[in-house]
Design a protein around this nucleic acid. Structure first.
Lengths: 307, 307
DNA sequence: CCCGCCCTTTGCAAAAATGCAAAACCCTTT
DNA sequence: AAAGGGTTTTGCATTTTTGCAAAGGGCGGG
């Protein structure tokens, strides 16, 4: 029996298909299929049920899974026991909502990679909750603290959101001094049925009923605002990336949210993951603080300033 | 990184040489060497120091070892999680002192194999203590309860030993009625400097100073007695195998010893090993009882009986 | 209803791993 | 001092594994 087949088994169990597992492993799907077959014959059990859309764990495979995960944990533990207390290395896949993925992670991860030459970071921006248990990512950043599951959770940093619009848009409209002045302006926000987390329902919190231009991506929303399409809620840390975009009504509408880092319970004792998480938390916190400090502090009456 | 290389690493670490590891794994030594090399390059560490008499673990390898053992345990755990509560299967290597290995284990293990078709038993008869931590055997039978180590220990069965000689030898010598009558008879026993366990120093216990014909193997001693070479201490359970050998002075000289089963601490939670140990214990106990019951109960005055 | 996409499976050629035999080495023994 | 038994290492033929391309199937959208 080839121990390495357990590695392939684990990938297939998580990917639910030979081809997806092959993509993630970097080997051909046919090889994956043959390895699974070999394992099944070696163990003399049927590990998967073959459905038209892929492989799904059979009861026997379900029983095998925890053992395979134990082996995987021991395997990574072995690697990091030898790599010593030096730098962080290897591959890590971080899932994040796209605001974080666009405006924060690139710089933070770039610094991380520079500091640790052996480190390889993959940023997966997705407008949905991650399925960590299937290892779609090694760690995920979320906008709310998950309640279920036995994951390892830590608060990364707080951040602020405010209403904002491009100065060109503002100068073409009556000045906005109170919340009531928003009436009749074109609002930019989330596609309502694609809000995957209650915390993202910013506009509802401000009392705006309906947005006219919507997207499931905050980065797209930001681009819309930058293009002068209207008014929307944006992350303060994104504003420095969009010259000309100014916050409005900062006294009346101000939201605070937090990023949370979610990790596998299995990784709790992983030296590498712990250090990685710590570095990520520090980097994100510092970057949010830096970016929020760059946002021009406009007085209510002087929306115009530098470019 | 190929997880299967950990299996090879483990074997080399235990065998202390590529060739020995290859023999145990059933693959060529050159392949073993290449796999180790591949693992070392994958981990970028030197796992072994190459000595003229083989490979020995380098400090880095020492750190890797516990992880490899964890993986091994998970691996066997995986197998037995799937094999279900049916029979016992797989390979097991049992080390035993040669008296046990010759007169008890063959029948007991034969029955075990018959009851569990998938089971493959290897009996290693060796006149020395086993090094279980290096997996020279999966379990070992010993004549005394070991004090050191964190092994799993259980008492298997008690057994008796008595002085015995062949009836042809007895009829050619004056009758033996007391211990003093032994004086001048040729004694058969252990080679004194090869006694590997205090419990084996039977003759000293009887007051005999020196044996004239000695061996490190109780089975050889038994053959000598059967050939009429003299008087010696033998296991009662061995007597039925040697027609013509009769016990003497049973009232004055009678020893009782115990067999102990020693297993790896790592195997403590292994369903398979537990069941195997239980079956072995029951089988041995029953076989000792059966064989001791076959020993003719001779009166002091009538050494002659049936063949 | 058919077309396209994604999945698995199969056949075949290329690549990789393996076993074997020989060489080189060290230690012990004669 | 040389021979013998143990080890590892190396070169080469063979076997095994792998990747690629094509084929076969089911599901969903136009």
């Amino acid at each position: 029996m080839d121990w390495d087949d357990m590695r392939i088994f684990l990938a297939v169990a998580r990917a639910d298909s030979l081809s997806a597992a092959g993509r993630r492993l970097g080997i051909d799907a046919s090889t994956v299929g043959r390895r699974v077959l070999r394992l099944e014959t070696a163990l003399a059990v049927k590990l998967f049920q073959k459905t038209p859309q892929g492989y799904s764990l059979a009861p026997e495979g379900e029983r095998l899974l925890p053992h395979a995960e134990t082996i995987e944990a021991a395997m990574t533990g072995a690697s990091e026991a030898l790599s010593g207390p030096g730098g962080i290395s290897g591959q890590v896949r971080i899932g994040a909502p796209d605001g974080c993925a666009n405006y924060l992670l690139p710089q933070v991860c770039a610094r991380l990679c520079a500091a640790h030459p052996g480190l390889e970071v993959q940023i997966v921006a997705l407008p949905r909750v991650f399925n960590l248990s299937r290892r779609e990512a090694d760690m995920a950043i979320a906008v709310s603290r998950p309640t279920a599951g036995k994951a390892v959770i830590q608060r990364l940093t707080d951040y602020n959101l405010h209403l904002a619009a491009h100065e060109d848009y503002l100068s073409g409209h009556p000045p906005i001094r109170t919340r009531a002045d928003l009436k009749g302006l074109r609002m930019i926000g989330y596609i309502s049925d694609m809000i995957f987390d209650r915390e993202l329902d910013y506009l509802a919190e401000t009392g705006v009923e309906r947005a006219a231009l919507t997207s499931n991506s905050v980065s797209v929303q930001m681009q819309a605002i930058r293009a002068g399409a209207g008014v929307g809620i944006v992350h303060d840390f994104a504003i420095p990336f969009c010259p000309g975009v100014r916050r409005i009504l900062t006294d009346e509408v101000s939201l605070t949210r937090s990023f949370w880092l979610i990790r596998h319970a299995d990784d709790r004792s992983s030296q590498r993951m712990n250090r990685l998480a710590e570095a990520l938390a520090q980097g994100l916190k510092a970057e949010v603080a830096r970016l929020q400090g760059l946002v021009p502090v406009e007085t209510e009456m002087s929306p115009a300033g530098r470019t």
